[in-house]
Amino acid sequence: MTIKTLFFGITRDVIGKSNIEFDLNEGQSIADFQSILAKNYSGLTDIKSYAFAVNEEYVNEDYIIKENDIIAIIPPVSGG
């Protein structure tokens, strides 16, 4: 399944794009996806940490990604 992923803040600069479509298998978790990201984009390891949101809600790493989900990579926030 094809999953749209959005990048913000420093991760957008590291990746060089605001969104990418990834081809994932059914049943893959956010943790699985994180290893795919780390393998493909080594620059991400320089960032302190980043969280994941699915469909505009924070999720933890055992969330199982579903068809039509929109994933967002959320680097450390700094609003206010």
Binding site: G9, I10, G80
Partner: peptide, 28 residues
């Protein structure tokens, strides 16, 4: 409200200096 906003709301701040720019909180 301000303490929680700074922890959870997906907003990012970039600081611009004379000699460059940096995303706040992004690096260890």
């Amino acid at each position: 409200a301000i303490d929680t906003l700074k922890k959870s709301v997906p907003i990012w701040k970039k600081e611009f200096f004379k000699d460059g720019e940096v995303w706040v909180n992004a690096h260890p």
